[in-house]
Computed example of a mutant assay.
Amino acid sequence: MSPMATALRAGWARGLVELRQSFTNGADLWGHFFWPSLMVVVTYFLRDVSFGGSGFLLGTLVLPSILGMNASMAMVSMSQQLTADREDGTLLRAKATPNGMTTLLLGKVVSVSGGLVVDLAVFLVPAMVLVPGLAVGPGSWPTLAWVLALGLLATLPLGAVLGSVFTSVRAQGLITLPILGLIGISGVFYPVTAMPQWVQWVAQSAPVYWLGLGMRSALLPDSAAAVEIGGSWRHAETVAVLGVWAVLGLLVAPVVLRRMARRESGSTVAGRRERALGRVG
């Protein structure tokens, strides 16, 4: 077996171990179930709220949008985990191992993606029972699958880039507010067509909107496309925009990660650890 094949196999195994551990850790387990459950409650209370004179219920429109929002948040999880590995020296140890960076990154992709699928299931299964108006059929699941796969391909490299930029987990808070703002204008909790034209253009420049649109196309009746921009699901545009983000991320992420790995040393890890202990003290 070639060294690269060995690294890929080890990365897959590492990701599965990390995923399994996330279901035995109290904090991770809380995250897997609390936020999806909270979103179920939100959609339940919106189930009887009408969206203007469209005849559609806001809860029905919001449900698939939340799936897209959660999928886009995979980049935040990737960023946080890479930053944590950088801060505690895990990344430095991977750097010193042949093909160790490949193993580490593949492990993160597996664990983050696997955790996301579980989170989506925790939200979707009860929400489908509680919220009326969905149009789930044989074609829904393939559409969900390709939108989710392409969305992860677009967002996980971005998460890796962000994880390379920040040197501490505390600094990750700097990206939370902009991302929440982007989610707020991306049609997750209210259709983007109700917003000003310039806001619609900003929303359409980011993956969050297109992930939500793709999920809505899978779970809502075709008539619901009337409340979307252009009155259609725009699958071709969804593939194009998410594909552009995926290509950009896959081109930029390896360069940024290599530069970040070159700067890592025992002294930099020790310095960050001392600063962290100083803050605690």
Rank of each mutant, 00 (worst) to 15 (best):
residue 2 S to H: 07
residue 5 A to L: 14
residue 14 R to G: 12
residue 17 V to C: 06
residue 19 L to Q: 10
residue 19 L to T: 09
residue 22 S to H: 05
residue 27 A to N: 12
residue 29 L to Y: 12
residue 33 F to P: 04
residue 34 F to R: 09
residue 34 F to C: 12
residue 35 W to A: 15
residue 38 L to W: 02
residue 38 L to A: 14
residue 42 V to R: 00
residue 42 V to S: 02
residue 45 F to N: 04
residue 45 F to A: 08
residue 46 L to Q: 04
residue 47 R to H: 01
residue 49 V to N: 10
residue 49 V to F: 08
residue 50 S to K: 12
residue 50 S to P: 14
residue 51 F to G: 02
residue 52 G to S: 02
residue 52 G to I: 02
residue 54 S to D: 06
residue 56 F to H: 05
residue 56 F to W: 08
residue 60 T to F: 00
residue 72 S to D: 10
residue 73 M to K: 04
residue 73 M to N: 10
residue 76 V to T: 13
residue 76 V to L: 14
residue 77 S to R: 03
residue 81 Q to A: 12
residue 81 Q to S: 13
residue 86 R to D: 09
residue 88 D to W: 11
residue 92 L to C: 09
residue 97 T to I: 02
residue 101 M to N: 11
residue 101 M to L: 15
residue 104 L to I: 08
residue 110 V to S: 01
residue 110 V to C: 05
residue 112 V to R: 04
residue 114 G to K: 09
residue 116 L to W: 08
residue 122 V to K: 07
residue 122 V to A: 07
residue 122 V to W: 06
residue 125 V to L: 14
residue 126 P to H: 07
residue 128 M to Y: 00
residue 131 V to K: 00
residue 137 G to Y: 04
residue 139 G to K: 05
residue 139 G to N: 07
residue 140 S to I: 00
residue 142 P to G: 09
residue 142 P to V: 10
residue 143 T to L: 13
residue 146 W to N: 06
residue 157 P to V: 07
residue 157 P to I: 10
residue 161 V to S: 01
residue 165 V to Y: 15
residue 165 V to L: 15
residue 166 F to L: 14
residue 167 T to W: 11
residue 171 A to R: 13
residue 173 G to P: 11
residue 177 L to A: 15
residue 177 L to S: 11
residue 184 G to W: 09
residue 184 G to M: 13
residue 187 G to T: 00
residue 191 P to G: 03
residue 191 P to T: 01
residue 193 T to Y: 09
residue 199 V to K: 03
residue 199 V to E: 03
residue 205 S to H: 03
residue 214 G to R: 00
residue 218 A to H: 05
residue 228 E to G: 11
residue 229 I to T: 14
residue 231 G to K: 09
residue 233 W to N: 10
residue 233 W to R: 08
residue 234 R to H: 13
residue 240 A to T: 13
residue 240 A to G: 04
residue 246 A to Y: 03
residue 246 A to V: 03
residue 248 L to D: 05
residue 248 L to W: 08
residue 250 L to P: 02
residue 250 L to Y: 08
residue 250 L to T: 10
residue 251 L to K: 06
residue 252 V to K: 01
residue 252 V to M: 06
residue 252 V to G: 02
residue 256 V to S: 08
residue 257 L to N: 03
residue 258 R to G: 01
residue 258 R to W: 09
residue 266 G to F: 12
residue 267 S to W: 09
residue 267 S to V: 10
residue 270 A to G: 09
residue 275 R to P: 00
residue 277 L to F: 05
